[in-house]
Design a protein around this nucleic acid. Structure first.
Lengths: 125, 125
DNA sequence: CAGTATCCGCTCCGATACTG
DNA sequence: CAGTATCGGAGCGGATACTG
């Protein structure tokens, strides 16, 4: 049935990377966290800042981040409604890692793009 | 047509996170890089270590990482064939960021799981 | 051993419409 | 304003079979 039955000991090691990807490998979670670093933002502000996200995915992403205790949601009971999102302490602990990734990307993307385009046109010497 | 036409200035900021996710948000790339940290591995060794990967995805992942200059592929022309994969220097520069993420995951996963299960059973006080 | 080739299910996510 | 509900397409990735 399954190609590789029950896993072996290594899965303990792969588990860590797997968990990170399962949690943040989606399209928007990391971006929302990164955006909230400066402080609170309303639903509509997030919607505007992430131009390309759909309402559905913004809602889903916010809900899952809240469920996992990474952001908190504060509702002001008024008309029209006002909802503000902020990072929790747990969520803030992610920021250094995000910064490191962003720094790596800034430093390395040129090299990656260069390697990628070189592959595209091998043009042997 | 498109909900949010051409993006605005913010996309310059989101771009960084987007690029990282586009490159490493897939299911296996980060894991392969993490596995190669200790040194060279053969195709079959990677296949064995990542119990749950299919041959197709291993091949695809390795090829894309090679295309982007993150790993290198060395073929020994013999029968049966022998192919070894190693991290390039560029690939190695990713390791500190991966370590940071793994450390964060190790430290924070318990809190995340706790928050997640609390949401599942609200059982108001 | 180290792949290729093909088929296809399933999840992710965007578009659209509607609501309190 | 801040969502919810529903539909449907695209593509990621697994299973399987085959090759040099």
């Amino acid at each position: 049935m399954i190609r590789k039955e029950i896993k072996k000991d290594f899965d303990m090691a792969e588990c860590s990377v797997r968990n990170i990807l399962d949690r943040f490998g989606d399209k928007w979670s990391l971006m929302v966290i990164d955006l909230l670093r400066e402080g609170k933002l309303r639903y509509s502000e997030l919607d505007n800042k992430i131009e390309s996200i759909s309402q559905k995915m913004l809602t889903v992403t916010l809900k899952s981040l809240e469920t996992d205790g990474l952001i908190s949601r504060k509702v002001y009971p008024q008309i029209p409604p006002r909802v503000e999102y902020t990072l929790t302490e747990l969520g803030q602990t992610l920021l250094p890692a995000i910064d490191m990734l962003k720094k790596w990307a800034a430093d390395s993307m040129p090299a990656i793009l260069a390697a990628r385009s070189k592959m595209a046109t091998p043009s042997a010497p």
